[in-house]
Amino acid sequence: MGTGFDFNFQVIWESVPFLLTGLKLTLLITIFGLLMGFFLGTLTGLMKISRNIVIQKIGGIYIESIRGTPVMVQVMFIYFGLPLALNMRVAPMVAGIVAIGINSGAYIAEIVRGAFQSIERGQTEAGRSIGLSNLQTLLYIIWPQAFRRMIPPLGNQFIISLKDTSLLVVVGVGELTRTGQEIIASNFRAFEIWLTVAVMYLMVTMSIAKVLNLMERRLEIRA
């Protein structure tokens, strides 16, 4: 009379190809979502340090409203809510990318803002004093230095966004978590499958951390 539980390697082995397909979707959503988030975040982060009060406020409203609401609600709003108002259908995959993009954008905005504000005023003044325009100073002097300071918190955000994609199960995107659920629904091997899913997430997040670490050190050596 045991507990009746015997760990089954065979089911893991059989599920891996399916889970990898799910992982591929997870990575796609994360990559495109973060690209969008990086663009949105840089834009709104800079808006927040603009001297124009209206621009500043618009950036602020975006950041506050996204940070102040759960990702899950944002996902469902984008997938189930918005299409009703706009009278159009949105593919789950697109909704997922947009949700991750809009969500990470708000956090990236704060990272961008913080990094820019941490660059000493003297750098801007030195840029302006040799005749660089405001935009040139931003592009050639401030941005490269600020970007370096953004890497560690950006890495953190990449990992958070990757994990957030698991919430997309609610809209039926066949990413890693959803794939795991579906496999379990047919074989009931919850322990093995969730363990495999967890290990897959972990391998990706650890790789992200590793790559960013290398990037940070490379940039460090140069200056």
Binding site: G122, A126, Q145, R148
Partner: peptide, 28 residues
């Protein structure tokens, strides 16, 4: 921008661009 190139400024805290070599600081 033109006025500023006519009157160069040297600062107490140097304000060199840390991500550029000495030469790049001069040539930018």
């Amino acid at each position: 921008n033109f006025v500023r190139t006519e009157a160069g400024m040297v600062f107490q805290q140097f304000n060199l661009f840390p991500h550029m070599t000495a030469l790049e600081n001069v040539t930018i």
